[in-house]
Design a protein around this nucleic acid. Structure first.
Length: 336
RNA sequence: GCUGAGGUGGCGGAGCGGUCAAUCGCAAGAGACUGUAAAUCUCUCGUCCGGAAGGACUACUCAGGUUCGAAUCCUGACCUCAGCA
């Protein structure tokens, strides 16, 4: 089979811009979108929550409101004439997960392509990007609250034993770290159990295939610079009113235990409200957490060899990205 | 100046005669990740050799002392904090 025919089988092109936090992914994406007639889909596990704007860095210009087409339950923001999807998908009182995200993203991407525009997936949540780009076969296996509750208190060793009995293959694949990770073990058991009860569906699940050609672009910078930016950004967010944002959330019955509130820039304030923790301390910890997060992100992204990295300290990086992207869009060739 | 408490690894903080290179937490470094992913989890963490087992060395403010043996007991010096002046 030659390249031409492969290309015709894969008409959908998805540009991905990823990388650690505060490298200017969205800014770059907006500029690119203007040039290639694109629309942005945010791949960010926190920006999906409504009312969590300052802390998650949605960076929306003042007064911009979400636009909700009457026939859809999700909408977009328009920044500089560019549509951004993927914000405000969920109520912060509810939990949100990759499966929901994938479903959402696939629908929007398809819609964007149908309208003749170029989808640009932008974000720092590696798992969400992977979900869209490569798919996660077990993502559709629903959670089982009763099971989770029952297993909650079980020590990792016992959980592992249980998993080994139900799905020895999966158990064998688990690495040393995950064998001690209760959350992962419980999910694995959940999946194993579901498979036992849904043998037919499992086959269907595996046969689903992606019909996308992707181009992954990563933005980086020297760690020092990223850290500096983080400090500035945290200070900005305090100034912009993160405290009020949190108070508003609390008023709307969002509580500290909810997954949404485990976000950086939120959870650190818990003891500030009530336990007399100082703002300086909150800010310090917030900065530290952001820095640790950058490292985790890099560990994740580094492993994906498809990503082409651009250092944002080189003055001509936007041009270089642009050139690459334009070339990619104009060719039918599939990227390796 | 007096009285009380205390000085332990980058920080917080255990240990209170031997099993202590020193529980634990944080920070730091490395890494994992297939429905919570900004989440969760793992490993390393005095120095040197070793993949590890292990070994060598230097350590619990400083200086002496008691003891077979001291981070742990005694004396003094320096410093910190709290209360009284």
């Amino acid at each position: 089979m030659n390249k031409q025919s492969l290309a015709s089988q894969n008409p959908c092109k998805l540009l991905v811009i990823c990388g650690p936090t505060s490298t200017g992914k969205t800014t770059l994406a907006i500029d690119l979108a203007k040039k290639i007639n694109g629309e942005i889909i945010s791949a960010d596990s926190r920006q999906v929550y409504r009312g969590m704007d300052i802390g998650t860095g949605k960076d929306l210009p003042k007064g911009v409101k979400i636009k909700l087409p009457w026939f859809q339950k999700y909408g977009y923001y328009e920044v500089g004439g560019v549509k951004i999807w993927g914000y405000d998908l969920a109520d912060p009182r509810h939990e949100f997960n990759v499966a929901q995200y994938i479903k959402f993203a696939e629908r929007v991407i398809l819609d964007i392509i149908k309208r003749g525009k170029a989808p640009i997936l932008v974000g720092g949540t590696g798992l969400y990007i992977r979900g869209v780009v490569d798919g996660i076969p077990t993502a559709s296996v629903p959670k089982n609250n009763l099971l989770r509750k029952n297993l909650e208190k079980m020590p990792p060793g016992e959980l592992f034993e249980k998993l080994a009995q139900m799905d020895s293959l999966k158990a064998g694949q688990m690495n040393a770290s995950d064998k001690k990770n209760p959350r992962r073990l419980i999910r694995a058991i959940e999946v194993a159990m579901w498979k036992i009860n849904n043998i037919k569906k499992e086959k269907e699940m595996e046969s689903r295939k992606k019909d996308l050609t992707v181009n992954l672009i990563g933005l980086t910078a020297p760690e020092k610079l990223i850290f500096k930016r983080i400090e500035l950004r945290v200070a900005d967010r305090v100034r912009a009113g993160i405290k009020k944002e949190i108070q508003d959330l609390l008023k709307k019955h969002v509580t500290w235990e909810m997954p949404s509130m485990s976000s950086m820039g939120y959870r650190q304030w818990k003891d500030y409200f009530g336990n007399g923790r100082s703002q300086a301390e909150v800010v310090r910890e917030w900065e530290t957490e952001e820095k640790k997060y950058v490292k985790r992100q890099m560990v994740w992204f580094k492993k994906d060899k498809r990503i082409r990295w651009f250092n944002i300290t080189s003055a001509d990086y936007p041009e270089n990205v642009e050139k690459l992207v334009e070339k990619w869009y104009s060719s039918d060739r599939i990227e390796a």
